[in-house]
C-alpha cells in the first residue's frame, strides 16, 4: 500500500529513488518479521531430526544426523500410538467444530443482517459483547455447568462450547449486509424459493469469503484451545493434541527421554494447521479481491 501511494505524493527526480528506498525498507521489515516467525519453526524442525544425544551437543539451528523418520516412528510406537489418537481427536474437535460453528455463525449473522425483527439490535449487541469475553474466562463456569449434567470428561464437553463463535456472527452480519443485495433475495423469493433454500443456494455463495475466514479462525482457535480441555478432560483417549503434548511435557522430570517425543510431536501438530491455511487461503484471496471490485 505505502509503496503504491508514495510515488503519487512525491515529485521530481527523487521519486524513483525514494520508491526504491521505501520498497527496500518494506522488504527489510518483512524479511525480519519472516525470520522472527520462522526461526522457532526452523529450530523445531531441526531439533526433530536429531537423536537424543545430539540434541544437547550439536548446534541448535543446524542438522546433525537426520533421524526424523526414526523419531516419528518412536513417537507413534509410544504407548500404543496414543499420539495418533490425539491428532485424530484434534482433527475432529477442530474440523467438525469449526464447520458447524461457521454454519451457525453464518445463519445468525445473515438473519440479523437481512431480517427485521424485534430485539434485533439488542441480540446483536449481546453477541458483540461475547467477542470481548475471552474463552479462558468461561472455562471454569463451563466446567461447573457440565458437572451439573454429568458431562465432564466427555467428547461433548469440549465439542459443544466450540460451536459458538461470536466473532463469526459479527463478521457474517457485516459481510451479509455489504455483499448480499436485498434485490437478489427478493428475486429468489419471487422465483419461489423458501428462505432456507435462498440462504443455502444463493446467499452462502456470496458469503463464501466470510465463511472461509470464520472457518479458518475457528479451526485455529479450537486446534489451539488448551485451557478448556485441560479443565474438562481426564481420559487420555479424549485429549486433543495440545493437551496431550502439555501433559507429556510436565513428565519430563520423571522421564527425561519424553522430551524428544514432545518436540517431534509439536512439529507434527502444526502441520494440519499449515495445510488448512494453504488449502483455504486461495478462496480467501479471490473472495476478498471480488469484494474489492464491487
Amino acid at each position: 500500500m505505502s509503496a503504491q501511494t508514495a510515488p503519487a505524493r512525491t515529485k521530481g527526480r527523487s521519486s524513483v529513488q525514494e520508491s526504491i528506498a521505501s520498497r527496500v525498507l518494506a522488504m527489510a521489515v518483512m524479511a525480519i518479521a519472516t525470520l522472527y516467525f520462522l526461526t522457532p519453526i526452523w529450530w523445531l524442525f531441526v531439533a526433530s531430526t536429531k537423536t537424543r544425544g545430539q540434541f544437547t551437543t550439536t548446534a541448535p539451528l543446524w542438522f546433525a544426523d537426520f533421524n526424523l523418520f526414526e523419531n516419528i516412528q518412536a513417537l507413534f510406537d509410544y504407548r500404543n500410538a496414543v499420539f495418533l489418537r490425539w491428532l485424530l481427536n484434534s482433527a475432529l474437535y477442530a474440523g467438525l467444530g469449526a464447520a458447524l460453528a461457521t454454519l451457525f455463525a453464518a445463519m445468525t449473522g445473515y438473519a440479523i443482517a437481512k431480517y427485521t425483527f424485534w430485539g434485533r439490535n439488542a441480540l446483536f449487541n449481546v453477541i458483540l459483547g461475547g467477542v470481548l469475553v475471552p474463552a479462558t474466562a468461561l472455562a471454569l463456569p463451563l466446567f461447573l455447568l457440565f458437572s451439573q449434567i454429568g458431562a465432564t470428561n466427555t467428547y461433548w464437553a469440549v465439542f459443544l462450547p466450540s460451536l459458538v463463535s461470536p466473532f463469526g456472527v459479527y463478521l457474517s452480519r457485516i459481510y451479509a449486509a455489504a455483499s448480499v443485495p436485498d434485490e437478489i433475495i427478493e428475486a429468489a423469493r419471487i422465483d419461489g424459493a423458501g428462505e432456507v433454500k435462498t440462504f443455502f443456494t444463493v446467499s452462502t455463495r456470496m458469503l463464501a469469503p466470510a465463511l472461509v475466514t470464520i472457518f479458518l479462525f475457528q479451526f485455529v482457535a479450537i486446534w489451539n484451545n488448551f485451557f478448556l480441555p485441560l479443565i474438562m478432560l481426564r481420559d487420555e483417549a479424549l485429549f486433543p493434541v495440545t493437551l496431550g503434548l502439555y501433559v507429556w511435557n510436565t513428565q519430563v522430570s520423571q522421564i527425561p527421554d519424553i522430551r524428544a517425543l514432545v518436540i517431534i510431536g509439536s512439529l507434527l501438530s502444526i502441520i494440519p494447521l499449515i495445510i488448512t491455511f494453504l488449502g483455504l487461503q486461495r478462496f480467501w484471496q479471490s473472495g476478498l479481491a471480488n469484494g474489492g471490485l464491487k
Partner: peptide, 23 residues
C-alpha cells in the same frame, strides 16, 4: 485411571474444581 498434567501443571487445580463441583 484418569490422567492429566503434573500437580502444579493443572491437576491440583482440577481437583479443587472437582471438589467444588462434587465430582
Amino acid at each position: 485411571v484418569q490422567t492429566g498434567p503434573n500437580g502444579l501443571g493443572g491437576t491440583y487445580q482440577n481437583f479443587f474444581n472437582q471438589l467444588a463441583a462434587g465430582n
